[in-house]
Simulated assay, not measured.
Amino acid sequence: MTDTAHAATPGPRTSRAYWTVVPGRGELRTAPLPAPGPDQVLVRALCSGISRGTESLVHRGLVPARVHERMRAPFQEGAFPGPVKYGYLSVGVVEEGPEPLVGRRVFSLHPHQDRYVLPASAVTPVPDDVPSERAVLAGAVETAVNALWEAGPRFGDRVAVVGAGMIGACTAALLARFPLGRLQLVDPQPSRAALARRLGVEHMAPEDAAGECDVVVHASSTAAGLARGLELLGDEGELIEMSWYGDEDPAVPLGADFHARRLQIRASQVGAVAAARRARRTTADRLATALDALRDPRFDALLSGSSRFEQLPETMDRLAGGSSDVLCHVVAYGPTT
Rank of each mutant, 00 (worst) to 15 (best):
G246H: 05
E248S: 14
C213P: 08
T222E: 02
E236C: 14
V201C: 03
A205D: 02
E241H: 08
H203S: 10
G234F: 06
H203R: 05
W244F: 14
G225P: 02
A223L: 09
M204T: 08
S221C: 08
H203N: 05
L239N: 09
E236A: 15
G211D: 07
L226P: 00
L230P: 08
L226I: 04
L239Q: 08
R228D: 01
D247F: 10
S221I: 00
R228Q: 12
M242F: 01
E238H: 10
E241T: 06
V217M: 11
V216Q: 09
G237A: 11
A205M: 02
A224N: 07
G234K: 12
V215A: 03
V216D: 08
D214A: 14
W244H: 02
E202W: 00
D235W: 14
L230Q: 06
E241A: 06
L233A: 05
R228E: 06
V217C: 10
D214L: 08
L232M: 06
R228H: 11
D247C: 11
E248L: 14
G237F: 04
A224P: 02
G237H: 08
S221V: 00
S221F: 00
E236F: 12
D235G: 09
C213V: 08
C213G: 09
G200L: 13
D214V: 07
M204K: 08
H218S: 06
L232V: 01
A224T: 13
L226N: 04
G229D: 07
D247A: 15
A223V: 07
G225N: 05
A223R: 05
M204Q: 13
R228G: 02
L239Y: 11
E207T: 03
G234I: 10
L239R: 09
E238A: 14
E236T: 15
A210T: 15
T222P: 01
L226T: 03
A227K: 07
I240F: 08
M242P: 03
L233I: 05
E236L: 10
P206T: 01
A205T: 02
I240E: 00
E207F: 00
A205W: 00
G211M: 04
D208S: 09
E236N: 14
D214Y: 10
D247H: 14
L232C: 03
A209K: 10
I240K: 05
M204L: 14
A223H: 08
G200I: 08
M204W: 00
A219K: 00
T222V: 07
S243T: 07
G237I: 12
S220Y: 06
D247S: 14
E248M: 10
E231P: 00
G234E: 10
A227E: 13
L233E: 10
A223S: 15
V201D: 04
A219H: 03
D214F: 11
G225M: 04
A227Q: 06
A210W: 11
A223E: 14
G211C: 04
L233M: 10
A219L: 01
T222R: 09
